[in-house]
Simulated scan of single mutants.
Amino acid sequence: MTDTTSAAVAEASRRGRPRGSYAKTEARRHKILTAAFEVFSTSGYRAGSLKDVADKVGLTQAGLLHHFPNKEALLEAVLTLRDEESVSRTGALTAQGIEMLRGVVELARYNTTIPGLVALYCVLSAEATDPDHPAHEYFQRRYNWVRSTMTEAFDELARQGQLRSGIAPSTAARQLVALMDGLQVQWLLDNDSVDMPAEVVAFLEAITTEKF
């Protein structure tokens, strides 16, 4: 189902329900996603079960499946919500040029406040290297999009003379993605010794002429 189709279906469903009923349904869905965050980040996607998620919110598996038709749909909703919340809070990946990169620094700062979601991302992105994993294509698309978006930002810096000589925008983008992912793992292992936003700032200031 395309994003447009999904939106249309959601809107049609929304119009067909009383407002109070819809609000209660959305609240229940949010509780389910919160529980899924906890289960998948602790146990991983394969080991974490729908029963584990349902138990956390006081539902039967049948009740859970009323809101999400299967485990794959629940996983996609969890990942989508994580990305939407991160981008909306920091502006990362929606601005351009230098402002987009400043948003990335804010994203690294925001991530220090959500260790459970960072753990979820790390666990699932590792699991999803298996081509048979249901999130495999999601992470492929996500990495391609993030690298492309960051490359455009570094391209803009190069045009403005803000990228240091000899730095290829595509290489800088790939290195920044790798840095952020690697920092997240190190931070989860020992968050007292890792300052994620400071490390991202140090990298960006090393390859650009700007202050972050």
Rank of each mutant, 00 (worst) to 15 (best):
S6T: 09
A7L: 15
V9D: 02
V9E: 08
A12K: 06
S13Y: 09
R14S: 06
R14T: 03
S21G: 15
A23S: 10
H30S: 05
T34Y: 04
A35V: 06
A36W: 12
E38F: 08
V39K: 08
G44A: 07
A47V: 01
L50Y: 02
L50F: 01
D55C: 07
G63K: 10
L64R: 07
L64Y: 02
L65K: 15
L65N: 15
F68Y: 11
F68M: 05
A73Y: 04
L75I: 07
L79G: 00
E84S: 03
E85N: 08
G91T: 06
L93V: 01
G97H: 11
M100C: 09
M100S: 13
M100R: 11
L101M: 00
R102E: 04
G103M: 10
V105Q: 10
R109A: 12
T112E: 12
I114D: 00
V118P: 02
L120W: 11
Y121M: 08
V123A: 15
V123H: 12
L124E: 07
A128E: 01
D130C: 01
D130R: 03
D132A: 15
H133W: 05
A135F: 03
A135T: 03
Y138D: 04
F139D: 02
Q140M: 10
R142G: 01
Y143K: 12
N144A: 12
N144G: 14
S148F: 02
M150I: 06
T151V: 00
T151E: 08
E156A: 15
L157H: 01
L157E: 02
G161I: 02
L163P: 00
L163W: 13
S165A: 14
S165G: 07
S165F: 07
I167K: 12
T171G: 14
A172D: 06
R174G: 11
L176H: 12
L179S: 11
D181M: 12
G182E: 11
G182T: 12
L183M: 15
Q184N: 15
Q184S: 14
Q184R: 13
L188G: 04
N191T: 00
S193G: 04
V194K: 09
M196A: 08
M196I: 15
M196N: 08
A198R: 12
E199N: 12
V200T: 05
V200E: 06
V201F: 01
V201W: 03
F203W: 09
E205I: 09
A206H: 02
I207V: 15
I207N: 07
T209A: 02
E210Y: 03
